[in-house]
């Protein structure tokens, strides 16, 4: 009986948190737009969330593309179809790896930083202080960060994919000697702009929404203590990663699968 009550309590509190997260999102986004104030804040956040994530994204993209090229080559060369490496690298990057890995790295690099920043603002009463000054912290603090994450992830994902493809090309064409005409031609024949590139981008948009939402909510909802902030940061990374992987399956099934 006790266990049942515990389960019920846990379920209810999760549900309540979900409700609060929804309310927060609604209140921060559904507001009279104030472009003059909001745009500089937004730009600043794009800098912190996007520009500063660029290095990790480019480096990871490059290496993942190179590894894909290398692995693809060693497998496909046995079947004499090593010219399909380009196709394999491009398809796996554009459809899956670019949005998913970018989202995971983004959750670790930018998401945790967002949570910690907002959590610390809460702990040091900066959010309360904003409220007392008569500024809604949801609009001032949460909304620009949310939009920045939402916009940055697809951009980062596209950069990741392109860098990865060139990484694969470096390994495949330059080092392993695949004929570069067939490498690119195979790739261009099999990758479709609408089905593959745009669908990958839609994934990135969805992930951007979810990861940033989780990050800002965990920061906004955390206990204003050092322990609470560390828990919230961990939660951001864990929940965001799980959400990305779970959603990726659903999105893949809808876009590419015939479930």
């Amino acid at each position: 009986m006790n266990q049942l009550a515990l389960l019920g309590h846990a379920a209810l509190s999760k549900l309540a948190a979900f409700g609060r997260a929804g309310m927060m999102l609604f209140q921060s986004l559904v507001a009279k737009p104030q472009p003059v104030i909001m745009f500089p804040l937004f730009v600043k956040q794009v800098y912190f969330v996007g520009v500063l994530s660029l290095i990790i994204i480019v480096v990871s993209g490059l290496f993942i593309g190179m590894v894909l090229g290398l692995q693809g080559y060693t497998i496909l060369v046995d079947y004499g179809s090593e010219q399909a490496v380009g196709q394999m690298v491009a398809l796996s990057l554009v459809r899956e790896l670019a949005p998913v890995v970018t989202a995971l790295l983004f959750a670790g690099r930018a998401g945790s930083a967002l949570t910690a920043e907002i959590g610390l603002m809460k702990a040091t009463e900066q959010l309360s202080s904003l409220e007392m000054i008569g500024v809604d912290p949801l609009r001032r603090i949460v909304a620009p960060r949310f939009w920045a994450g939402f916009v940055c992830l697809p951009i980062l994902s596209a950069i990741f994919a392109l860098v990865g493809v060139y990484g694969g090309a470096i390994v495949g064409v330059e080092w392993l000697g695949i004929y570069d005409g067939s490498f690119w031609a195979n790739m261009q024949n099999s990758v479709d702009f609408y089905d593959d590139v745009l669908n990958g981008l839609i994934k990135a948009v969805v992930f951007g929404f979810v990861v940033t939402w989780i990050a800002v909510f965990q920061g906004y909802d955390c206990m204003p203590t050092s322990e609470g902030i560390s828990q919230a940061t961990t939660k951001t990374v864990v929940y965001a990663s799980l959400a990305v992987l779970g959603l990726d399956f659903i999105l893949t099934a809808v876009m590419f699968g015939e479930l």
């Binding site: 040091t124 900066q126 309360s128 202080s129 007392m132 008569g134 809604d136």
Partner: peptide, 30 residues
């Protein structure tokens, strides 16, 4: 509520200055 709060000033225990902007901007903020 926000308009009533414009008539209130509050000094928080920790000061609660906005850490990303200078002293001048903090005071200029409201």
């Amino acid at each position: 509520l926000f308009s009533v709060r414009e008539r209130m000033g509050m000094l928080f225990q920790s000061g609660a200055l906005f850490t990303d902007i200078s002293v001048f901007e903090n005071v200029a903020f409201p």
